[in-house]
Design a protein around this nucleic acid. Structure first.
Lengths: 346, 346
DNA sequence: TGGGGCAATCATAGCGCTACGATTTATGTG
DNA sequence: CACATAAATCGTAGCGCTATGATTGCCCCA
């Protein structure tokens, strides 16, 4: 192990066809300048800029973000973890967020937790291994390990779609309890005195549960009776129909119904039609979500319109601000509110 | 620039708290062994494995995928580009694909093209800069530049949700023309002789257009009259209602309607109810998509169920196979089919 | 006793880029 | 015109990991 300096032959490597050095060479500048141009074009002279962009075009250069991210110790990826993108609410947020982030050339890495904290924990771990520029979680409820993983990261941690609990860093959303209360008050104001909440999957969907609780509480506060009928599966119109039939069987005096979301409400309306229950004369129905069909059904559905779109945009704005060096002054809460869409079903 | 060897002081760097070397040190092995353990656990002895996993746990080590990807010249990311995840069809595929890929510890990077080829091109460029393990596009129609970008990549390029055109590499989906034909044949078999297609956004949504074309062609082949009424905006129940009213005004003799998707069909059913048009007696309605409400509405909607879920799973399977070194024997086509769900609306 | 064959482990050379500091060139200013 | 100052550019040392080939230790059989 002394003399005879070990001469490693020269191991080949796979590689990228065109690198930044190739661009630099063609543009007659140093690689540093190309890198600078790509990151802060305004810091490079007009002549150099022109030569570089010409070279990039000619060579069809695609930067390697992994090399860049490794060197810069942070990537241009944003991780977002939602229960499921099949759920229109989260799809909307994901979509609006991605649209806003694209302007910053940030990419979205998507994960589905399926309402499972353990799954979420694993996804957070995977997400962190990308050294993302920010990480977005749904809701305020996470496993202890998840909290520990996120406690000391230097990037923004944003919790969306829920407000009113202990938050890790920034939370963007609204109070689901308030939604329930608003609906109860609306129904009471419409003269309803026998209220009922139709809920699906409330053992997993904390936010649906919160809406239900807010509803019951507000009804109680107003001295109005309120019942709950629920189903363990994912919300769908089919389940909404079943639940409505069951509700009227168990509580025939019911005259005002709040649904955990518009799928349930739609199913309830279908069932009312089949059972010849007049809406809203005999029974008022209110949903949550203002989905695409809600304004079109018979009768048009009174519902609460959340701000899924705004949540995504605000999250993107925050990430952008952080990227531009604006220090966040401690934990932050953004209430994006919701609005009651009063239509003819109530 | 001769003597006085430039002595660069020693520039500090941001860094990751726990690296693979830390794990190696604690486990009393070399970093190579840790790396090997992480990639091929079966190649490491039981004792070493145990020591390493203990060290990983103790240090809470999170591997840096960017460093890994850079060294290996390929990342554990899969890029998927869909028109929009707000569209339930694509949401389903994205969701099932992500679930399948998670087992391989592959992450999904999501992009929305909004039915714009130029947007898609830009997203492909961004996607490639991650050196993904595979790239998934929606449809077979892409800009020339996109094709050029993807022509020589060494990774699987998978086009989903469309079959029957020139494909870049592998295509997974079904023939939308066949969907239209199947619906037309079904309506004709049900005794309908005055057919009509209700379409939304067909100038952008090539696949809706293909369904329409297949419908018209099959009707023509059977010697049955067929009309089209369309709207430029995104499909929704509201537009479905409008289109149905317009259709009955322009073509009052119509007795069988195919809709570009279930949102339109739902709106059509709502309109029929309001206009007291009996479904299916006076008018048969068929949709596309088998969305969550389609089995619950009044009457339950006859519709075509595509295989969005299967498309995602098949794509994931292909990517997995490629990752495990199975060479693809040239361009490949997987027809995931569709099924007609005959319900009471026809 | 001497290796041949194998399994397990290791040392090393980058992957392509960014950040830092240094250097060079342009621009004032008294 | 000297000198400070700003603007533009460059050289270099890693970022944390993987792939390659080399090395070590061990068993087995002639």
């Amino acid at each position: 192990m002394d003399a005879a300096r070990r001469k490693q032959p020269r191991n080949r490597r796979k590689m990228q066809s065109v690198t930044m050095s190739d661009v630099a060479e063609l543009a007659n500048v140093s690689p540093s300048t190309v890198s600078l141009f790509l990151r802060k074009p305004e810091a490079v002279s007009a002549t150099a800029s022109q030569a570089i962009s010409r070279a990039i075009d000619k060579l069809n250069y695609v930067p390697n973000l992994m090399a860049g991210g490794l060197a810069a110790a942070s990537s241009r990826a944003v991780s977002i973890l939602v229960p499921s993108v099949r759920n229109a609410f989260f799809a909307e947020t994901v979509s609006s967020m991605q649209a806003a982030l694209k302007k910053q050339r940030l990419q979205l890495i998507l994960g589905h937790t399926e309402y499972d904290e353990h799954e979420e924990e694993e996804l957070v771990r995977m997400a962190l291994s990308w050294a993302p520029a920010a990480i977005v979680l749904t809701g305020l409820s996470h496993s202890a390990a998840t909290r520990r993983l996120l406690a000391n990261v230097a990037i923004p941690v944003i919790e969306i779609w829920e407000l009113g609990g202990p938050q890790i860093d920034t939370a963007i959303g609204f109070h689901h309890g308030q939604v329930g209360a608003t609906v109860a008050e609306h129904l009471i104001q419409q003269g309803r005195r026998n209220l009922l909440f139709l809920g699906a999957r409330m053992h997993q969907d904390r936010r649906a549960k919160q809406r239900c609780d807010g509803f019951l509480q507000a009804a109680g506060a107003a001295g109005v009776s309120a019942q709950v009928v629920k189903h363990p599966d994912t919300a769908s119109a089919e389940i909404g129909s079943m639940l409505l039939a069951e509700a009227l069987r168990l509580h025939p005096e019911t005259d005002g119904i709040a649904c955990s979301n518009d799928h349930i409400a739609l199913g309830a309306l279908f069932a009312c039609e089949r059972l010849k229950v007049a809406v809203p004369d005999r029974l008022a129905v209110v949903g949550f979500g203002d989905l695409s069909f809600s304004s079109a059904c018979n009768p048009p559905l009174t519902t609460v319109r959340p701000s899924g779109d705004l949540i995504g945009r605000e999250a993107a704005r925050l990430i952008e601000a952080h990227l531009h060096g604006e220090k966040s002054d401690g934990p932050h809460t953004i209430d994006t509110r919701f609005t009651l869409q009063h239509r003819r079903s109530s």
